[in-house]
Computed example of a mutant assay.
Amino acid sequence: MAKVIASQLRKGNVVEIDEKLYVILRAENFHPGKGTPVTQIDMRRISDGVKVSDRWKTTDSVERAHVEQSEFQFLYADGEGYHFMNPETYEQVAVAEDVVGDSKVWLQDGMLCHLAVHNEVAIALDLPQKVTVEIVETEPVVKGQTASSSYKPAMADNGVRVMVPPHIGVGTRVVVNTEDATYVERAKD
């Protein structure tokens, strides 16, 4: 365990408070004109998944838990959870559904992800920033509709709704940002 000051906490860090582990979901520092600067933290308790918000002075010290960050390859999902494999050691890890959370729609066979492991238990999953998906449903292209600012709704093969430019049709592979499901570009494959 290492002590750090609250202003150094970032998304994905794991801290220990009252002998319980929490993963940081959001950390924001506020510096008001008058008064003490504070750090607002949104975190999830790892043991039961409860979300908690807390506020500390930026100089308060917090116990940061030792967590191994390793790259794992997604294999498959079943009743036991989501299965990942370390590509170097071939060690497999089953990750609970509450750890994967909303990220499950982006998981693809063979995808490389970063897993945070504490005491041989996966506690946090970090996806690649961008993934490639195929458009399976969208409105047809309207002739003359070339304004670059106009977007149309489309459904990706993983079930996520994405706003795409008018020239994107069914069967087109596109790159999407996993954090907010926004269109990035047409896939180059």
Rank of each mutant, 00 (worst) to 15 (best):
V95Q: 01
V99Y: 05
E16Q: 13
L127V: 00
G33R: 13
H66S: 09
Y151D: 01
Y183N: 03
V164P: 03
V162D: 03
K51S: 09
T172S: 07
T132G: 03
R10T: 14
D109R: 15
A6I: 13
P153C: 04
P140M: 07
S148Q: 13
V162H: 01
V141K: 14
I17S: 14
R10N: 15
I5K: 14
K51Y: 00
L25C: 07
E139S: 13
K34G: 11
V133F: 02
Q145E: 12
T36K: 14
P87E: 04
T58E: 15
N177M: 09
D180W: 07
T36N: 14
R161V: 13
A147P: 06
I168R: 00
A181N: 08
G159V: 00
R10G: 09
E88I: 12
A154K: 06
D180P: 00
A147R: 14
D18G: 06
E63F: 10
Q145Y: 10
K143E: 13
G33C: 06
P128F: 02
L107A: 00
D48T: 06
V176T: 07
D102I: 08
S149F: 15
T182A: 11
I46L: 03
V142H: 04
R10S: 15
R173F: 03
M1Q: 14
D98C: 00
Q92I: 05
F84C: 05
V160F: 04
Y183I: 00
K104F: 13
A77P: 01
K104H: 15
H114Y: 12
A187Y: 04
A156V: 02
Q8P: 03
G49N: 07
E97Y: 04
Q145S: 10
L21R: 12
H167C: 03
D42T: 14
V176C: 05
A6Q: 11
N86I: 01
K104T: 12
K51G: 05
V4L: 12
T59D: 15
Y76V: 06
G33A: 13
A187M: 05
P153M: 07
R55C: 09
H118F: 11
L75R: 06
P32D: 02
K152H: 05
R161L: 11
K3W: 13
Y82K: 00
R55M: 08
V160G: 02
K130A: 12
N177Y: 08
L25I: 09
T39R: 09
Q73G: 01
A187R: 05
E80H: 00
V160M: 11
D18P: 04
D189H: 04
I46E: 00
V14L: 02
A187N: 01
V67D: 12
R26V: 10
F72R: 11
E137I: 02
P37F: 06
G33M: 10
M111V: 01
V99R: 03
D54E: 15
T172F: 04
I46G: 02
